[in-house]
Design a protein around this nucleic acid. Structure first.
Length: 260
DNA sequence: ATGTCGGATCTCATCCGA
């Protein structure tokens, strides 16, 4: 059994105790983190090592920042998209060489938010997605067993939005973003979460504002895409809402996939 | 409800980004 997970922690400095609690309760083989918001010198590798996790990290001041935590060694680490000049730390990839399934390549991503359609940040998101897709073609060719997971900042369909009418053409829900999500699938991935029957309103993110979590007004924007050769290996894919119920939660919940 | 967080700087208040 191989368990992989993704979690946007919205500041690892704040969320480290919750992360350690979560790993103790959910001893996954690998976890990718987004929005660590830490420079590399501040990354809490010793605390994670004490909890049984090796780490690879790629951070910056104030914003973004990603990490790959693994119980066994990960190799061939890549930070950001090769050939795509980017000041923002959004991607970390590594290979788990010793799994029961053979080598599995894991790519953790913090997709750009995009702010609003038509904005400069939206244009950056589109350029970043194009670069990601070009790179993934190579990655898939080299690593047939590939898992792409993270905070995509895209709600793929109206079924992933609590109020599809209100959110129509809004950021995370635009036609352009959804076309990119489909483009990612067309490269040779499946949305692991949608391979299984799921509870109603399966959101992964709730705005801090407006009592959104209490009212269960959320979006499913955190995803795990597994390459098609892994489809027969999929056992489960779930969103763990428990950490969102903490007193000082991240606005995102972890997503977990089980392969065997 | 431009309603809450987290981080940084303009630090005991306000900004930016999400």
């Amino acid at each position: 059994m191989l368990k992989l997970a993704t979690w946007n922690v919205n500041s690892l400095a704040v969320r480290l105790p919750q992360l350690l609690d979560w790993l103790a309760a959910n001893p996954v083989d690998a976890l990718v983190l987004q929005e660590t918001k830490l420079t590399d010198d501040k990354f809490p590798h010793a605390e994670l090592a004490a909890a049984g996790y090796q780490a690879q990290w790629f951070g910056q001041k104030t914003y973004n920042g990603v990490a790959l935590l693994t119980r066994t060694e990960s190799t061939d680490i890549v930070r950001n998209i090769p050939g795509f000049a980017d000041e923002q730390a959004r991607v970390i990839a590594g290979t788990l060489g010793q799994t029961e399934l053979g080598p599995v390549r894991v790519i953790g991503c913090y997709f750009p938010n995009g702010q609003a359609p038509g904005s400069d940040k939206f244009a950056y998101k589109m350029g970043w997605l194009n670069a990601l897709e070009a790179w993934l073609r190579d990655e898939l060719a080299q690593h047939p067993q590939l898992v792409l997971m993270g905070d995509f900042n895209i709600a793929p369909t109206d079924a992933d939005v609590y109020d599809p009418v209100g959110w129509k053409d809004q950021i995370h829900c635009t036609v352009e973003e959804r076309a990119h999500f489909q483009q990612l699938l067309d490269l040779g991935f499946v949305d692991a979460f949608r391979q299984f029957e799921q509870p109603p309103k399966p959101w992964s993110w709730w705005d801090y504002r407006n009592l959104a979590f209490r009212k269960n007004q959320g979006l499913r924007i955190d995803h795990i895409l597994t390459s098609t050769v892994l489809t027969p290996r999929l056992q489960a894919c779930t969103i763990d809402k428990a950490p969102r119920k903490n007193e000082r939660p991240s606005d995102h919940a972890p997503v977990i996939v089980t392969l065997a």
